[in-house]
Design a protein around this nucleic acid. Structure first.
Length: 884
RNA sequence: GGGCGAAUAGCUCAGCGGUUCAGAGCGCCUGCCUUACACGCAGGAAGUCGGGGGUUCGAAUCCCUCUUCGCCCACCA
């Protein structure tokens, strides 16, 4: 029967919730992760699947290790993104937000986010998130909003917030300013237009190169580098803006790159940040005219020719080029690759635009973080992000936090309309505190990241001094994708140090991004997304989690194929099925009571028992170490190997007869099985929590209310480590594999039982094979296994030689093909010779013997000896077969 | 202009300080419904580890360089 996760998973999840195991233990050392709050814009995608699963694995691991594990969940109001979605919904009804009005629009948004917010939280539960839902937060909750406001006012009081008049990124679609981070760079193939500006004294033209000809009506002057000999003497003269005829001055500035374009730069201070700075140096008192409106149509201004007024900026550009051509002022157009910034939410080309915005002074905040980083307060995993992080922090620029939106935290800045007093306030004032006059609040809202950067402490009740804050701050691991390293992680570090006086977390773990097979980021617009809920429905949450964890090496991106869910998620489902079935088998064998592993008589243990117990110790040790180092894929794979390749493929098969044997033997096997299965269910639980919990419940001796989710993490029992058993059982496996291989090669029908002989090299090996005779006979489908000193029927058997020189001969009278056998053994001999040659070369190399570590040399010598023995046996075989 | 990542079996990827490291899953081939599992069992085939150079006793693994793909940062008018 195949395992069906559908009825199991919801029931298990409910048990966890009912038992309250997602809440941190009352006692114990805390371990805290704050969940990157998903945006309430839409349902979850696979990126969340990876992000959430990674966190859940870590939280579950530490919870089982006894920590008071707290995973704080929540959702983000996602200012621009959410407002966009709701505006789109309105547009479907043919309405705009301006027609609806601020109050009604916000009511609309609230209705929307309540619905999506609930859905998202449900989805998080479906994939198994063990977050403490009683502490769920939303970045626009009243309490959370108080924290945001408190932070704003404090920064205001510390003079770290200021009104800046400068060129910012303006999204003409969203109709708001953006921060530097929100205006993404895109390499674009554009044109560089060379335009003649006639000199006002009619003594000729100067040529200016620009990518944005439409901005020329905002030019207030031309500048060239003072070292540029080409333009010597032009300083102080005037040039006329083509098509408008407005005369503007020519001046010099060091910032001009002589090598770019013509070395003559048009200065458009209201539409270019660089030009703004030059203008402030060269013509500090000059007006900085805007020539486009907020939605980027050409202004109806005297500076803009009438024929262009009201046109969209890009239409205007085309028209201007035509007009210039007609006037003979367009010198040439060059192909030009450059970076154009686009809005990260709607992909519109942003317009640099002079405006007044609220900024946060970042340098003092960043410096504090870097001091902590230098001291090792926190680390970044994987380490390679260090340079990126440091570079950004050290070149930090002030943060534009005001957005001309409605959805978000209203900026708590108030202005008296009478005396013009302006201040930030924790409460909404009724009147001006100075003159009692009427008060107006700033109409804008805050950048959504201005609320999420407080997540690690605002979710715990700050600015109140709550018990949660005292116990759970600072947190430990911050898990997220590198795409929001600057947006979120860096800023959380800044706010943490600044407002809490210390780091918000000790490790930043950056996992990869989910992409499709063409390495494209998954997105709705590309149609290459995968819906996690579809995956859960078809394969189960454990399978989804398995794929996310087992396929992601530290920090590497996760490539998934949206067109082939079967190939992508079946491995996880198949593994769950394997675990389920081995569970069914084991459980079917067990009585109500099974003695604990420490209670059984160790002298009763067989080689197979000692071997699997030893493998279990290695698995516990390696899995734990992998989890500790965030090598989640390795931890998962190690458990996979133990369950499938060691426990199921070998131990269970080896031990089946004893399950029908005498009571003592049975009891021993039961104990070993229960111990191994119990251990690996614990180790696997963080990755595949549902199926492991379901099976673990059913193991003998469980109390009714016991839950694997809060069970103890397995510890290595050194007394069960057994290198000898590892070695010996490996030989038994090899013998069986050799015989099976020979069977397949000679196409022996499955039902046919064969006879075989093993000639062991050395007494200890002989003892091993003798002890495991029954196992070898059964698993290799033998009628009988001889362990006599001499090979029986040497001429009529198929041979295989072990690495240590022992040999196995499978009797194949009648079926044996001497030719084939010769070829097989000759190939084998050839391989061996090849290896021996390499080894000999190394060992005769004086440099190797002299310089390589002695233990390495010794090992190579031993190897050579064994291989020579093996070779000798093989060669003897070939001779006795009469092969040429 | 600067920085980072990827290039290993048909596909998706491991290989984390050099000496059984050439691996896994899927796919493929052969044979099996061996009563836990056909979402399975057993046995196989398959790669000159992107190219070139260097360091070393020894390199898929370290260094340099080149090529291709992707990402990030930057006042490329």
């Amino acid at each position: 029967m195949a395992y069906d996760p559908r009825p199991v998973e919801p029931a298990i999840y409910k048990r966890w919730l009912d038992a309250g195991v997602f809440q941190p233990r009352a006692q114990g050392e805390p371990y805290v992760i704050v969940m990157p709050p998903p945006n309430v814009t839409a349902v979850l995608h696979m990126g969340h699947g990876l992000d959430i699963t990674t966190q859940d694995v870590l939280i579950r691991f530490e919870r089982m290790r006894g920590r008071a594990a707290l995973w704080v969940p929540g959702t983000d109001h996602a200012g621009i993104a959410t407002q966009n979605v709701v505006e789109k919904l309105l547009a479907e009804e043919g309405k705009t937000r301006f027609e609806v009005g601020r109050e009604a629009f916000l009511a609309c948004v609230w209705e929307f986010v309540k619905k999506t917010g609930r859905t998202i939280l449900e989805q998080l539960k479906v994939i198994g998130s063990s977050a403490d839902w009683s502490r769920t937060r939303f970045t626009l909750d009243p309490e959370y909003s108080r924290a945001v406001r408190e932070v704003f006012v404090r920064l205001w009081e510390e003079k770290l917030i200021y009104r800046g008049h400068r060129v910012i990124h303006w999204c003409p679609r969203c109709l708001t300013a953006l921060s530097d981070e929100e205006a993404e760079h895109h390499e674009t193939n554009g044109n560089l237009y060379y335009i003649n500006y006639p000199l006002a004294d009619n003594s000729g033209n100067v040529t200016v190169a620009t990518t944005r000809p439409e901005t020329m009506f905002g030019d207030i002057g031309l500048v060239y580098n003072p070292k540029d000999k080409r333009y010597k003497g032009l300083k102080g003269k005037q040039a006329k803006i083509p098509l408008s005829g407005l005369a503007i001055p020519i001046a010099v500035d060091d910032a001009v790159d002589q090598a770019f374009g013509t070395g003559m730069l048009k200065v458009t201070p209201a539409h270019d940040a660089n030009d703004f700075e030059i203008a402030n140096r060269v013509w500090p008192n000059e007006e900085k005219p805007l020539i486009t409106t907020e939605d980027t149509r050409m202004e109806r201004s005297s500076r803009v020719p009438e024929a262009l007024q009201g046109l969209d900026r890009f239409d205007a550009r085309k028209k201007i080029v035509k007009m210039l051509e007609k006037e003979g002022l367009l010198v040439k157009v060059e192909q030009h690759q450059h970076s154009v910034r686009r809005c990260y939410r709607c992909d519109s080309v942003v317009e640099p635009r002079l405006s007044d915005q609220w900024f946060v002074k970042m340098k003092p905040l960043a410096e504090r973080v870097m001091q902590g980083y230098a001291k090792g307060d926190f680390k970044i995993v994987p380490e390679r992000w260090h340079a990126t992080f440091e570079n950004w922090m050290n070149n930090i620029r002030d943060w534009n936090i005001s957005r001309q939106l409605w959805w978000g935290h209203r900026i708590p800045v108030f202005t008296c309309t009478k005396c013009e007093h302006q201040w930030a306030d924790r409460e909404d004032p009724k009147q001006c505190p100075k003159c009692g006059g009427p008060v107006e609040q700033d109409p804008d809202v805050l950048d959504t990241w201005f609320s999420s950067w407080l997540w690690p402490f605002a979710t715990l009740g700050w600015p109140e001094k709550t018990p949660d804050l005292a116990r759970f701050y600072p947190g430990h691991t911050l898990v997220t994708g590198p795409d929001i390293l600057f947006f979120w992680v860096a800023r959380m570090l800044m706010s943490g140090y600044h407002f809490m006086g210390t780091k918000p977390f000790s490790t930043v773990f950056l996992h990869g991004i989910v992409r499709d097979t063409k390495h494209r980021k998954m997105s709705k617009s590309l149609g290459n997304g995968i819906d996690p809920l579809v995956v859960v429905e078809k394969f189960g949450a454990d399978a989804l989690r398995w794929t996310c964890i087992a396929n992601t090496a530290l920090g590497q991106d996760l490539m998934l194929d949206p067109d082939d869910l079967e190939t992508t998620f079946a491995p996880g489902r198949n593994f769950a099925n394997k675990v389920w079935n081995i569970g069914q088998f084991i459980l079917g064998q067990l009585p109500a009571q099974v003695p604990a592993i420490e209670a059984i008589d160790r002298r009763q243990l067989t080689l197979a028992d000692r071997w699997i117990l030893s493998r279990a110790q290695a698995t516990i040790q390696e899995t734990t170490a992998s989890f500790e180092q965030f090598r989640l894929d390795e931890a998962a794979k190690r458990c996979f190997e133990f369950v499938w390749n060691e426990l199921a493929d070998w131990y269970v098969e080896a031990v089946k007869p004893r399950l029908g044997g005498d009571a003592k033997a049975r009891a021993t096997v039961h104990s070993v099985l229960v111990y191994c299965f119990d251990s690996v269910l614990r180790l696997l639980h963080p990755v595949v929590p549902f199926i492991t919990e379901e099976l673990w419940q059913k193991l003998p001796g469980r109390q009714a209310n016991e839950l694997l989710a809060v069970a103890d993490w397995p510890k290595v029992r050194p007394e069960l480590e057994d290198a000898g058993a590892d070695r010996e059982f490996a030989r038994v496996k090899t013998a069986i594999e050799h015989i099976r291989s020979i069977r397949a090669e000679y196409r022996v029908p499955p039902k046919t039982k064969l006879r075989a002989t093993i000639v062991a090299r050395g007494n200890d090996r002989a003892a091993t094979f003798a002890g495991e005779r029954e196992t070898i006979e059964r698993l290799a489908q033998l009628e009988s296994l001889a362990l006599d000193g001499a090979t029986q029927g040497a001429g009529a058997g198929a041979h295989a030689v072990f690495g240590d020189g022992s040999e196995v001969v499978v009797a194949l009278e009648g079926t044996i093909d001497v030719q084939q056998e010769c070829r097989r053994l000759t190939d084998e001999l050839g391989r061996l010779d090849q290896q021996l040659k390499g080894l000999a070369a190394r060992l005769t190399n004086q440099n190797f013997v002299a310089r390589a570590p002695q233990d390495v040399v010794a090992r190579e010598r031993e190897k050579e000896k064994a291989w020579r023995d093996q070779r000798e046996v093989l060669a003897g075989k070939l001779r006795s077969l009469g092969c040429s």
